Each structure stands twice: as C-alpha cells, then as structure tokens.
Simulated scan of single mutants.
Amino acid sequence: MEPQAQQSNTPARAALNAGLVIGLVMLAINFIIYFIDYSFLVAAWYGISILVIFFALVIYFGSQYRKEIGGYMDFGAAFQFSFVTLIISGLISTLGNMLLYFVIDPGLPELLVETQLENMVAMLDSFGAGDSISGDQIDEMRSEMANSFTIAGQFKAFGISLIVYAILALILGAILKKRDKTKDF
C-alpha cells in the first residue's frame, strides 16, 4: 500500500494535475476576455495580469504539494513540479488558442494583428517615434504578427515557450523549495 501512495506523490504526477487545472483556468479566462472584447487579448495589462495569475497559481499548487509531502521539498522536486506544470498548462493554452483562432473565430487572428499594430504605433507615437516607421516596415511587422497566429506559428511559440518555462521553473523552484533544517548536522 505504501509504494502506491508514494507513487501518487511524485512531483510529475502532482504537476500533471496542477498543470491541467491551471491550463483550464487560463483557457477559461482567455475565452471570457474574448467574449467581453477581443482587443483585450493583445493589451499589455491583460498579458501582465495573466502572468501574475499564472505565477500565483503555480506557487499555490506547489505550496499545496509541498504541504502534502510533509512540508519540505528540495530544489530538484520543486523544479520538476514547476516545469511539468508550466508545460502542461502551456500546452492546454496553446491548443485552446488554436481552437479559438481556427475553429471558433477564424477571422480573429487578423483582427488581433490589426489591434496589435495599432497599439504598437500608438506607443511609438507617444515616444515621438511613430513617424520614423515606413509603410514597408509596418507591412513586414503585420506579416510577422500574422505568421504567429498560424498553426506553425503557434507550435513555434510553444517551442520557444519551453525555454522560457525552464527559466521560470528555476525561479519557481527556488521559491517553492524548503529544506528540512533539522537534518542539517
């Protein structure tokens, strides 16, 4: 009975559950924001808010897992938990975005590209650099942004995200680790 209980407490198994929950929460938030106003999906405040919620949820579930396994977790287990959680939730979010972009609203990527371009030009104008961008440069940016909303672009972004997830998992692992100081001699 003990080996079965021990197996269910592995960082990877706990991370699968946490990643699934976090991915579904992020997906639900994304769809709610889409139904409220699609332009919020490319707003800076939305990206920052999602990042804060994402970090908070990983730390919450990591703390719960640490509590579940006795209150202590070494860095390796904390890193593994964080990395697997980020991968699973990122994969769910990517698949959900693809569902939104290619099935639910195939015209959305074009609208998001235009909104993103408008936001960028407005930001450059506020810095006084809006006039320095040529029409060709804007067309090139539009093309690059549009490519990020293709199926290949989504998988490429997820691949790049794996590197970012590894770095974030290092940070989250450092936050979540807690060593048992009674074992120090």
Rank of each mutant, 00 (worst) to 15 (best):
A12K: 10
N147C: 00
V21I: 15
G71W: 06
M73L: 09
A129G: 08
V21M: 15
L41C: 04
V58E: 11
S143D: 12
A152Y: 10
N17V: 14
F185H: 14
D136S: 09
G128I: 11
A78N: 00
N17A: 15
P11F: 01
G135M: 03
L117W: 05
G135H: 13
Q7A: 15
S39G: 01
E114I: 09
F185W: 14
P3K: 04
L124A: 13
F185Q: 12
Y72W: 04
I32S: 00
F54R: 04
S8F: 11
T10D: 00
F35G: 13
M120Q: 15
L112M: 06
F35I: 15
F102D: 08
V164Q: 10
F55H: 03
Q4P: 05
S93P: 07
E114D: 15
T94R: 06
L57P: 06
G47R: 03
L95D: 12
N97C: 05
N147G: 09
I175E: 04
K67Q: 07
I92T: 08
F185E: 09
G96D: 08
V113D: 01
I50R: 06
L91K: 00
Q64K: 09
L108D: 13
I59Q: 11
L27M: 10
K67P: 01
Q137Y: 05
V84W: 04
I69N: 02
A15I: 05
R142T: 11
M123C: 10
K177V: 15
A146N: 02
S63V: 09
L100W: 06
G19M: 01
S143Y: 11
I175T: 13
D74C: 01
E140V: 04
F83Q: 04
L16M: 05
M145C: 08
L57E: 12
E144S: 10
D105Q: 11
D105L: 05
I104G: 12
